[in-house]
C-alpha cells in the first residue's frame, strides 16, 4: 500500500464562511429595506429616490449588492464544481461569470450614485 498522505487544499472554509456572512447581511438589509418602504406614506418614484439619497443607504445598498454578487459567485462556482468536469469548459464558464459579476458591480456603483 502506498503511504500517500492525503492533505486538503487548505481553502474552502473562507468561501463557505463568506457565503454565510453575506447571506446574513442580505437578510438584515432586506428586512431594513422593507421596513423603510412600508413605513413610508405611498410608494412612488419620489419616495423611492428619497430612500436612496442618504450616503449610508447608498453604501449599505452597495454592500448588499456586492454581497449578492459574492454569494452568487460562490454558489455558481459550487454548481460548476459539482457538475462540470471538463477543465477548459469550466475555466470558460468561470470567466464568463466573473466578467459578468464585475460588470454588474461597476454598473451598481453607477446606478446608486446616479440616482
Amino acid at each position: 500500500m502506498v503511504n500517500r498522505i492525503v492533505v486538503g487544499a487548505h481553502y474552502g472554509l473562507r468561501d463557505w464562511l463568506l457565503q454565510r456572512i453575506t447571506a446574513v447581511f442580505m437578510i438584515v438589509y432586506i428586512a431594513v429595506f422593507f421596513v423603510q418602504v412600508l413605513s413610508g406614506p405611498t410608494l412612488d418614484f419620489a419616495t423611492w429616490r428619497m430612500l436612496f439619497t442618504p450616503q449610508w443607504m447608498k453604501y449599505a445598498t452597495l454592500l448588499f449588492l456586492f454581497s449578492l454578487y459574492l454569494h452568487a459567485w460562490i454558489g455558481v462556482r459550487d454548481i460548476v464544481m459539482d457538475y462540470i468536469k471538463h477543465a477548459g469548459l469550466r475555466l470558460a464558464l468561470y470567466s464568463v461569470f466573473v466578467a459578468a459579476l464585475v460588470v454588474y458591480a461597476a454598473w451598481s456603483v453607477r446606478i446608486l450614485w446616479g440616482i
Binding site: 492525503v6 492533505v7 486538503g8 487544499a9 487548505h10 481553502y11 474552502g12 472554509l13 468561501d15 463557505w16 459550487d78 464544481m81 459539482d82
Partner: peptide, 14 residues
C-alpha cells in the same frame, strides 16, 4: 482539519 479543509473533500456537502 488540514486533511479536510478543501473545497472538495469537505465543502461539497450542501
Amino acid at each position: 482539519l488540514d486533511n479536510l479543509e478543501d473545497p472538495y473533500r469537505l465543502f461539497r456537502c450542501h
